[in-house]
């Protein structure tokens, strides 16, 4: 939860505040700067080298896991993963054992079934709330907004037992519904805050113009604001996705056996198989696979979303 937790929050705040030093004519200069940058790029070989060395060092622990996941049980216990570099003996056995024998494939489906609604629902709700906070004047609006923002201080751990009580009372404990609902609740304060800042960035003249044309709130929301917010939604979507996919806490507390996602299943492998590092390393890499693909695939949107929020004009 830590990693994505941080990131979600920072995106939020970042978009709220990075704007200070940035002024209007930014976009027009951009093209020019690109050209200069291209020239400069070649002139910084030392910086490039250091940057790459650090990046490689940063990746070594992950590489270690990747290599380990292809090694045999005895090799993992008996020698360091780096010895595999000189003496490669790779086999997909661990992955087969993890996916087929330990049935992580079905947990993969669960992770998917949990993640999609748990990303869509809070984003939709947060968009609506953010719209209300940004464009519908009502009494106590600021107070309510600050209260919602401040709810970030509630540590998730605190909520688990009371929520579990509620779910059991309602007779829905253990189902996918409780997992979707819980993720949605926990995501809302951040999502509302972040999306509110993006909403605020939209020039009021656009909204006013639409209002003059007689458009209602729903029309303004869908026709005017939503198209402008796509990068922001993508940026938040990536983080919410990472958060839900990597979550262990909510899953362990609320998901029953049939709904257990990948993270919990891998953690459970650790619990039940003890020293089965061969399964763990393969399982851990499987859990990382989808977030990595999603992140690398959507990185462009994500950075654009950050930038869009930080250079509002």
């Amino acid at each position: 939860m830590t990693a994505s937790d941080v990131s979600q929050r920072t995106v939020t705040n970042a978009t709220g505040k990075i704007d200070a030093p940035v002024q209007g004519s930014w976009r027009s200069r951009r093209r020019q700067r690109r050209a200069e940058a291209a020239a400069e790029r070649l002139s910084k070989p030392a910086a490039s080298t250091i940057a790459i060395i650090i990046a490689v060092l940063w990746s070594v622990p992950t590489l270690g896991l990747f290599v380990t996941s292809f090694r045999t049980v005895d090799d993992i216990q008996g020698s360091g993963w780096w010895t595999a570099v000189t003496n490669p003996l790779f086999s997909p056995f661990n992955y087969r054992a993890a996916l087929v024998d330990s049935d992580l494939a079905s947990n993969f489906i669960n992770s998917f079934a949990i993640t999609l609604p748990a990303v869509l629902i809070p984003i939709t709700l947060a968009l609506l709330a953010a719209y209300a906070f940004a464009w519908i004047p009502f009494r106590g609006r600021n107070t309510l907004f600050v209260a919602v923002f401040a709810l970030q201080i509630v540590p998730i751990q605190v909520t688990l037992v009371p929520l579990l009580n509620l779910y059991v009372g309602a007779g829905v404990a253990g189902s996918f519904w409780t997992v979707w609902l819980s993720h949605s609740m926990f995501a809302l304060p951040l999502a509302i805050f972040l999306l509110h800042n993006f909403m605020k960035d939209v020039p009021p003249s656009l909204v006013e113009a639409a209002r003059m044309d007689g458009a209602g709130h729903v029309t303004i929301f869908f026709k005017v604001l939503l198209p402008l917010l796509v990068p922001a939604i993508a940026a938040f979507g990536v983080f919410q996705f990472l958060w839900v996919w990597n979550d262990l806490l909510v899953a362990l507390t609320f998901a029953s056996n049939d709904a257990t996602p990948l993270t919990a299943a891998v953690a459970d492998l650790a619990g039940t198989r003890g020293n089965a590092w061969y399964l763990l390393s393969a399982g851990a890499f499987l859990t990382m696979l989808v977030p990595l693909v999603v992140f690398i695939g959507l990185q462009r949107f994500f950075v654009r979303g950050l930038l869009a929020g930080s250079v509002k004009g």
Binding site: A3, L65, N246, L248, V266, P291
Partner: peptide, 9 residues
């Protein structure tokens, strides 16, 4: 990259 990795991993 480490940002995309769960606590378990």
């Amino acid at each position: 990259l480490p940002m995309a990795i769960s606590g378990v991993a």
